[in-house]
C-alpha cells in the first residue's frame, strides 16, 4: 500500500481535513439511518407511545403483528409479487442485455437510455397511467395489475445492472461453441448461463427487493388486495400503532437480506 500522501487530492489533505471529512460522512450516515434506528428501537420497547427514555424491552409488538390475520395475507402476496417480479424482469432483462451486446454503440446507448425512462418518471405517474390503462381495457384492479407495475419499476434497474456486468462478456465464446456443433440450447445451458449466473442472481434479488418495497404503483392498481407496504400504509393512516414498527422491521430485514445477498454474489464473481 502506498503511504498516504498529504496532497493526494483529498478535500483537506491534512489531518484536520480528514477529521472534518470523517465528521461530514458521519453526519450524513446519521441522517440516513436515524429513521431506521428509530423504527427498530421502538419495535422493541414496551411503551406504546414513542418517547424517551426507554422503559423496557419486549417482543409483544411482533407477536401482535404476526397474530393479525391480514399480516399473513399481506406477507404471502408480497412474497408472491417479489418472486414473480424477480422471475419476469430477469426473463425479459437478460435477453435484452444480450441483444444490446450485438448492437453498435449509438443504437445501444439510445436503447439503454430508453429502457431507463420508467425509472425517471415519478411512481405516481406510472401508477395512475397503469390504472387508467387497465380500466380502459376492462381489467379490474388486483394483484396481477400490481405485478405488472412491479415489473415496470424493476426492469430498468435489472437492465442497468446486467448491462454493466455483461460489458465484459465475450460473445466469441458462444460462436466457438456453435462452431463446435452445440445447439443454441446447449450453448445457453453449458456456456452462457454458468458464466452469467451470478449477475442474473444479483439482478433477481434487486428486483425482488424493489418489489417488496413498492408502494405507490401498487396502491393505485391493487384494488382492495393487501401487500406489506399497503398494510403498513393502512395502519399508519389509522394513527399510532406500535405493531407498525414491528412490521416495518420485518420488511427492513428482508430488504437488507436481499440487497446484501446481491452485493455478496456480485463480489464473489469479481
Amino acid at each position: 500500500m502506498r503511504p498516504a500522501r498529504d496532497d493526494a487530492g483529498s478535500a483537506g489533505g491534512s489531518r484536520a481535513g480528514r477529521i472534518v471529512a470523517a465528521l461530514f460522512v458521519a453526519v450524513v450516515l446519521l441522517y440516513l439511518f436515524a429513521p431506521v434506528v428509530v423504527t427498530v428501537l421502538f419495535s422493541l420497547t414496551t411503551s406504546p407511545r414513542l418517547s424517551l427514555p426507554i422503559e423496557g424491552l419486549t417482543l409483544d409488538w411482533y407477536r401482535e403483528a404476526f397474530a393479525n390475520p391480514i399480516f399473513t395475507i399481506a406477507l404471502t402476496n408480497s412474497l408472491l409479487l417479489a418472486a414473480i417480479t424477480a422471475l419476469v424482469s430477469v426473463g425479459l432483462g437478460v435477453p435484452f442485455a444480450f441483444g444490446l451486446l450485438r448492437l453498435r454503440g449509438r443504437t445501444r446507448g439510445t436503447l439503454v437510455t430508453a429502457s431507463l425512462l420508467p425509472a425517471a418518471v415519478p411512481a405516481l405517474v406510472l401508477g395512475i397511467a397503469l390504472a387508467v390503462f387497465f380500466s380502459g381495457i376492462g381489467v379490474a384492479q388486483g394483484l396481477p395489475n400490481a405485478a405488472i407495475g412491479h415489473i415496470l419499476v424493476a426492469l430498468p434497474f435489472v437492465i442497468l445492472t446486467l448491462n454493466a456486468r455483461l460489458e465484459t462478456f465475450d460473445l466469441s465464446c458462444l460462436e466457438a461453441a456453435r462452431d463446435l456443433g452445440a445447439s443454441p440450447w446447449q450453448t445457453f445451458r453449458d456456456i452462457t448461463f454458468p458464466l452469467i449466473r451470478p449477475s442474473v442472481l444479483g439482478a433477481a434479488l434487486l428486483a425482488a427487493a424493489l418489489s417488496l418495497d413498492e408502494f405507490v404503483v401498487t396502491w393505485f392498481n391493487v384494488g382492495n388486495q393487501q401487500t406489506l407496504p399497503v398494510l403498513i400504509w393502512g395502519l399508519l393512516r389509522r394513527g399510532i400503532d406500535p405493531t407498525v414498527n414491528a412490521l416495518a422491521t420485518v420488511v427492513l430485514l428482508s430488504l437488507t437480506g436481499l440487497v446484501l445477498g446481491a452485493a455478496l454474489i456480485a463480489r464473489r464473481r469479481a
Partner: peptide
C-alpha cells in the same frame, strides 16, 4: 461507505417517512 449509503436506499420507503414523523 458507498455500500452503507446504498443500503439505506433499501430500508423501506414508507418506514423511513413514518419514522421521520416520530423524530
Amino acid at each position: 461507505i458507498l455500500g452503507v449509503v446504498l443500503i439505506s436506499l433499501f430500508s423501506g420507503y414508507l418506514v423511513r417517512i413514518y419514522a421521520w414523523r416520530t423524530i
